[in-house]
Design a protein around this nucleic acid. Sequence first.
DNA 1: TTGACAATACCGTCCAGACGGTACAGTAAC
DNA 2: GTTACTGTACCGTCTGGACGGTATTGTCAA
Lengths: 183, 183
Amino acid sequence: MSGRPSSREKILAAAAELADCAGPGNLSLDAVAQRAGVSKGGLLYNFPTKAKLMQALVEDYIAKFDATLVAKSQGACGEPTSRLAAYVELSAEEFEQVQPSAAGVVAALAEDPDFLNPIRTYKRQLLDTLKAESTDAAKLIVAFLVIEGLRSMKLFDMDILHEDERDMAFSYLLSEAAAPGAK
Amino acid sequence: MSGRPSSREKILAAAAELADCAGPGNLSLDAVAQRAGVSKGGLLYNFPTKAKLMQALVEDYIAKFDATLVAKSQGACGEPTSRLAAYVELSAEEFEQVQPSAAGVVAALAEDPDFLNPIRTYKRQLLDTLKAESTDAAKLIVAFLVIEGLRSMKLFDMDILHEDERDMAFSYLLSEAAAPGAK
DNA sequence: TTGACAATACCGTCCAGACGGTACAGTAAC
DNA sequence: GTTACTGTACCGTCTGGACGGTATTGTCAA
């Protein structure tokens, strides 16, 4: 909504990083302010309560994710990709990189599980969009859950899968996403 | 290891319930003690620090899960079921019931992500066991991740899937688990 | 059998520190 | 003069955990 210079975004980023490295439950306002290079007064000017900060953390996460997803599905290439293909691709990319923004979401969860409500509704909407494009609902659900599984592992730093195992998962997803009416 | 009367187990149960309904980050020793019907001194006698409580919460979760899994795969029926089938079945059952014990795990995560280490190693071992029994590694990985996805949704109270969608997922899992060499 | 002692399993209180949040005076840019 | 902060001081509350005390049970020599 805003797009103003930076203070707000610096705070959000600092909060996410802190949650990532100090543990989601140990996120204090003082620490966030310090890390963001902002005074505590300044922090509370941008986010009047901690709850608002958490909420913003979650909303920011969704907004960024959705923006990337939309960009990907409309693609630089003239032909728009399928939504599922874009989702798979995006998830694969997210998996490769360190991504502290998700840690902010966990921090919000630690504070109060209700902060995840926006994520719930977003996920449901996404699933509905994907369903509308798919001919085989069962396969879609399986693919969706595979991504969900991958994502939860990432979230918990569960680097359990070997490289070849991850590749198997992604090549499965890619083949499913590529097949339009694969019944 | 002990198995003495109950105090320790009452505390563990109380902690899990509290984490579930008060938010994982808001788990205080006083609250746990009160809910368990134990004084704070008593609590700290059983678990000398909060960290030990968290650790016990995680270990208890794994131990219970593994015990049920082993019991299920050796089955009341003479013939032992396949490990994957047992895992699928157990996950399905867990999905049906309210299960606060998992909330304790999230509480531990909130305190310090390292508390999840035992879960990491357990999951990896489980996956290896499943792999040893399976002929098609790729399908196994997919099934494993589907369960992981289902589990993470449950963990976050993401009651996103409609009933028929959940059924699709489980019938997929069941069919995969049933097929021994389905290549 | 009994008395002395010790271990176990807890209770209740207290405290230093951290935390979220408020208040407010000052300031620098637009 | 408004906006967007900085900096500091402060308050009330909560939290982990240390501590001293106590009731119950067990052990064992005399």
